[in-house]
Amino acid sequence: MKIVFLYPLRRDAYDFLKEQLPEDIEIIAKIREKYEGLRPNEDPKIIKECKDATILMGPYVTEEILEHAAPSKGGNLKLILIPWTGVDRLNFDIMKKYEIPVANSHGNARTVAEHAIALLLAAAKNLIHHYLLLRRGDWSDRFSGNYPSLNITGKTVGLLGLGAIGTECAKLLQGFNVKIIACRENPEKTTKEQKKLVEKIYSSNHLHKFLNHTDIIINSLPLTEETKGIISEEEFQQMKKEVIVVNVGRGSTIDEQALYEAVKSGKIFAAGLDPQWHYPSRSNNKDENEPTYPSKYPIHEFDNVILSPHRAADLKMGYEEAHWDDVIKNILRVYKNQEPRNLVDLKKGY
């Protein structure tokens, strides 16, 4: 059995997988520390290796690769495995054309949820503004009331999305004496465990009613055609005055101009954002010293917006070692000719 990585893999991650998987599973990967030249999914040597690959790792799958790897083209491919939650970089039209199963991973859910709560508390207490002042020895805003704190105790927290991350957020919030409500596409999918954690669940068809009742919004939605820009100017108008917005889903689920205007007008008390709208170029010709701001609007200039460079799942021990339990389990399921778990609905895009 062969696994081919379509993105550069860190050496420690490669070594970790070699330790965890059976010896007869071959791993083909460009090592990130030595990586230069063509991207793996554009490298003819890697593409050639895809011919007899059983699993392709990562979302960077091209039609050229599937012309080599798909069973309909004589290949051995059984699964495209995304070792993280987001699948929005996949070309779903190609996936459907070649009828290749896709699975993702929810192993990072607890870590991302902890990051969401950290962003929430930092935003509620306006920590960044006062931190920046005190680094300069400036205590002038200490009791001025310009950037005050809010208690979250007694507030209504609205979870926009109740998947693995939203559920972990609900668990972490149990000790804060808050009311927890949620909004999801299909409330009928709510488990018994989730019903115990959340007081009320709204359908996405009643998004505005959900927003009317929330003091704090934690968004963990994936990016699909339906969720792109789901929070726009109209939705911000439905929110309470001085709402706190936390995003650990995908940046483009929130309209960036609408968020900028909502912060500028004071509609938003504070925000904590991990995913962004603009990212550094992956091009090897990119000037490393050239700044890449998170939005085309100057959101980064607001002291009451906590910005995180989409690193909620990054841990000291390494992403793979920390979060790949279910990835490894899925690899082993394919190895044993069993049905993989966490399969993505190719029609819905998540």
Rank of each mutant, 00 (worst) to 15 (best):
D314S: 05
L197I: 08
T111D: 11
S281W: 12
A262E: 08
G251A: 08
H129S: 09
G318D: 10
S105E: 10
G37Y: 01
E23Y: 02
E67C: 02
T156A: 11
R11V: 08
E320Y: 12
K286R: 15
L207Y: 02
N247D: 09
Y350F: 14
L346E: 07
E168V: 11
Y279Q: 10
I94Q: 04
D88E: 15
P309Y: 04
K155Q: 09
G74V: 07
A270E: 06
L315Y: 01
V4Y: 00
I331E: 02
K347P: 02
N151Q: 10
A322L: 09
I306V: 09
N91I: 03
K30W: 00
K48M: 13
E301L: 13
L127I: 15
T227Q: 05
E320S: 15
S283K: 10
L160H: 00
L132E: 11
G251E: 07
E33T: 07
V178D: 01
D52H: 08
L162D: 01
K34D: 15
F5D: 03
G74Q: 05
N146G: 07
V246Q: 06
A122S: 06
Y279E: 11
K286F: 13
K2F: 09
G251C: 09
D15K: 12
L221T: 01
L159F: 02
G75E: 09
S252V: 01
D15P: 00
L6H: 04
D88S: 14
T190N: 05
W139K: 12
L162E: 03
T54V: 15
E99V: 03
P340H: 00
G145A: 06
I299E: 10
K195V: 04
I230E: 01
S72P: 04
Y147K: 11
E339Y: 00
Y131F: 06
S295L: 11
P291C: 13
E23Q: 13
L120T: 02
G229Y: 04
A164K: 02
Y297W: 14
T54P: 07
T224P: 12
N41W: 13
A322R: 14
L90E: 09
T167H: 00
Y98R: 09
K200L: 04
K96W: 06
L81G: 02
I165D: 02
I80F: 03
D325T: 09
P275S: 03
I80V: 15
A271H: 04
L90I: 14
E261T: 03
K286W: 12
E320H: 09
L127V: 15
Y60S: 12
K18V: 10
C50W: 08
Y260T: 10
S72W: 02
K267V: 05
Y279W: 08
V246T: 11
N212Q: 15
C169L: 08
S149V: 07
E42I: 00
V334Q: 00
I25R: 03
V248C: 08
Y147A: 14
G163D: 02
H213L: 13
D138S: 02
K209H: 12
G158F: 04
P298C: 03
F269P: 01
R250M: 13
K125H: 09
D287H: 10
L172K: 07
K2R: 15
N212T: 12
L315R: 15
V248Q: 04
